[in-house]
């Protein structure tokens, strides 16, 4: 019988959902992931820019599912599908990564130590929203994710009951059922480049969110508006920072 929790020899599988990421950070993200994970599972949400071809260039992408119709407006279905595909590879640990997230260098070195133990089942990291470029992150009332921990690394427990909230937008990338399992809050950091675009790109993102969630039912309407703030408070990123 396979033990529920292994303290050594754990395989780490990264899982990503992607859509039209070929000209953004996907190549960097896949290259970085290839350095420290064992497999990468990708669900392509009906890209039209050659994203699947880019994924295929990386040997560690062991499973690529391409959707012909986008599930963007039904995010919980997309998250559930990605989870289903990822666990079908019989992983020990899963790292949920977006196509614009990069783990800091020291995190890559320490990840093995975080998964080769039998005391906790999830790990939370601090995520920094880079803004206006690759040197600064945003920090204010609405942009402070780095002060909390986001769970992106989880042990796969075969047979456990996994479920996602049935929401169309802002669905957590990890099933809710991990909330009641023991976890560890790491001080390691993730760089999020999703907001690094030009003012025009930010405006398009804002318009997309407002169109999908005009009343801020799944997110926060004030935060949507703050995307357009012409003078956000930015803090310089330091590689050896706390």
């Amino acid at each position: 019988m396979r033990p529920v929790r292994k303290a050594s020899g754990n395989r780490l599988t990264a899982m990503m959902q992607v859509r039209n990421e070929a000209d953004r950070y996907l190549e960097t993200v896949l290259r970085e992931l290839s350095e420290f994970v064992d497999d990468i599972v990708v669900v392509d949400d009906a890209s039209s820019d050659g994203t699947p071809d880019l994924c295929r260039r990386f040997k560690k992408v062991s499973n690529l599912v391409i959707l012909s119709e986008s599930l963007f407006g039904r995010e919980w279905m997309l998250r559930s599908l990605l989870w289903k595909v990822a666990v079908s590879t019989d992983p020990d640990w899963l790292l949920a990564v977006d196509a614009d997230e990069v783990y800091e260098d020291r995190a890559k070195e320490r990840l093995r130590g975080l998964i080769d133990q039998d005391r906790y089942d999830w790990v939370g990291f601090r995520m920094f929203d880079f803004w206006g470029g690759m040197t600064h992150y945003r920090e204010d009332e609405h942009w402070n994710l780095h002060r909390r921990h986001m769970v992106t690394l989880v042990r796969f427990l075969p047979g456990y009951h996994y479920f996602f909230p049935k929401m169309d937008l802002h669905v957590p990338r990890i099933p809710l059922s991990y909330r009641v399992l023991p976890g560890y809050r790491s001080e390691l950091r993730i760089k999020h480049f999703g907001w690094v675009g030009s003012p025009e790109q930010l405006r398009r993102k804002y318009e997309r969110y407002v169109a999908l969630d005009p009343e801020g039912r799944f997110g926060n309407a004030d935060q949507y508006r703050s995307i357009l703030d012409p003078n956000p408070r930015l803090v310089e990123w330091k590689e050896d920072g706390p």
Binding site: H161, F163, P165, L176, S177, R179, V180, L181
Partner: peptide, 21 residues
Amino acid sequence: LLTAFERAVEAGRPNSLITHY
């Protein structure tokens, strides 16, 4: 039981792993 467990998790009951699952 699993339906009740989902509800307990959503309600933020941290001990539902033991009390329910």
